[in-house]
Design a protein around this nucleic acid. Sequence first.
DNA 1: TATCAATTATCAATCGATTGCATAGTTTTT
DNA 2: AAAAACTATGCAATCGATTGATAATTGATA
Lengths: 336, 336
Amino acid sequence: MRRPSMKELAHRLGVDRSTISRALSQDKAHLVAPETREKVRRMAIDAGYRPDLTAASLRRGRSQTIGVLVADLENETFINVIRTLIASLNVDGIPVTTPLIAETRDKPNAASRLIETFLSRRVDAIISLASTEADERALEDASREVPVILAIRTLAALNLPSALCDDREGGAMVARHLVERGHKFVCQVQGPPLATTFKLRAQGFSRICADLGVKEVTKPIYTAEATPTAGKKALDLVFECEERPTAIFAHNDAIAIGVIEALRERGLRVPGDMAVAGFNDTRLAQVLSTPLTTVAYPIREVGEHAALLFHSLIAGEKDKAGSRTFMPELIVRRSA
Amino acid sequence: MRRPSMKELAHRLGVDRSTISRALSQDKAHLVAPETREKVRRMAIDAGYRPDLTAASLRRGRSQTIGVLVADLENETFINVIRTLIASLNVDGIPVTTPLIAETRDKPNAASRLIETFLSRRVDAIISLASTEADERALEDASREVPVILAIRTLAALNLPSALCDDREGGAMVARHLVERGHKFVCQVQGPPLATTFKLRAQGFSRICADLGVKEVTKPIYTAEATPTAGKKALDLVFECEERPTAIFAHNDAIAIGVIEALRERGLRVPGDMAVAGFNDTRLAQVLSTPLTTVAYPIREVGEHAALLFHSLIAGEKDKAGSRTFMPELIVRRSA
DNA sequence: TATCAATTATCAATCGATTGCATAGTTTTT
DNA sequence: AAAAACTATGCAATCGATTGATAATTGATA
């Protein structure tokens, strides 16, 4: 017993399918007489009618779908931004726009392939939480066909509407805090430089160090991935330096945790022997027995602004769709 | 300059649209003469033709789309199963089936609402990594319209094809190991009992304890969520018991980490003062300075079998689509 | 030469919903 | 009482691709 289509409903009720369509719609329901409308709605429920969004999409030219590119599904911050984004996609608690979530893992051609799929599926917009310079071209091309919004990571060359965190200032906050605590020689364990996030955090941090006369380890230290494993490995590089710093700014909490575990293995105490600060304020940062000093990411703001950009852009209000950068917040705990 | 549709291509080439369709298809390309086929393909590329999957879906009655329900996007194990699942969805590296990923967070009505959306979008199948008893009805109803596959979590009452881990045996493995290490009085910090996973782990563990004459803390201890925060809180309950156990089996690694941090705060050493074992073998388990003894989840097997079920079911080969349960593996490290 | 098969392409219907335009019926205005 | 203005509904085209039925062409076979 297949579910009925509009045509079948129309037949049973002896009205035209267009009447059914209007009666069940949000915006055109006023065009049909209240009693007919009720009759249609009741019948639709009784018969177990379920609209076919594929057909509706085709006709409308809008798929009520949004392509979401994310660099890493294991990253709590990305996920949380996506969560608020999705929550803001619903209207009156009803999900009208379905997100197509796809992960790039920062692989070279992943983004462009996924964007092709999105466009074939006629997404109404694309939100990228995965932009790297390698994807610049693909995103630019896409932006000529459909609104493209950047979140978390930006691309200076592109001038696309974006929802960002002030990563430079975040890095600066950490630097100022370390200086305040009396550190004179510090070190960064940087995330992979393919995304703007880490580059800006590094710039902000270094700038303040330079201004306030604090020395940084000369050779920059990068991790291949922003993971605890990579952070652990990176600590070896720190210890290869001639002089040992007294504080480490890890570019995110996952790296920081790796650093802390590595320090523990060397029998060093945090913050006594080495102060450690992270970035993002993930769940784990709060649970550690030496709670992590870190920078809280403006998750809600970024997610909601991305949603707002989406809504403005598909409504054609290009003027309202401005980029915004939100301020993160330093959370001082025990580790630094 | 909008991209052309098939109709436009056909016009330019002076052939019928059906010829274009066949020339560009995988399975019907042999019906068109080799030279025409080449001509069409070249032209399609030159003109920047991009098929409209919305239209194709409508006509075919298949959307080349799969609905994926996941309980928690922050859970590494879920994500990794989804990753292998998605990888197996591609044919020759080309993504033919797009996953619609949606998160339930184990909220009461989330699953049924999301399933409605999936069905409205005419997904070819639904894979649930989020099944709880509360969703039983919704999944059963859905399974009458579309293939439904269960992964990670099962529902005994439903008899749907599934890809699972032998959680009971996993729990048993931990129990046997603890007994081997000489523990006589142990404790479980169980995950929320709404999913089969945790219930089975508990059963398997308790069964072995009973068989081998090892005492368990009398009152079962549950966490509200499978997170470090919840694990930390749960340790208080352990210490409320009259007698203190010497080992804790945390139902997953996230809980275990919470437990360990809580122990550290009390100045207790792992495994000296308290042994701790987890479940899943997440990335973090390997990085801890006291590496976690845990049970490695058969991620690849579960993901690939789920994909296989999907492929069999949409091919109509119901017989080939059998449920399978894969064996996890105990990873002994330092913590227990 | 007539018949049949194979190959290649066209025709036209179809998937299910949406929407501009037309029309019949009703109410309001003058 | 006629004209104007609404209301409520129906008609039919449309979105873009797919596919079964059918026609045209060529070659082979009896």
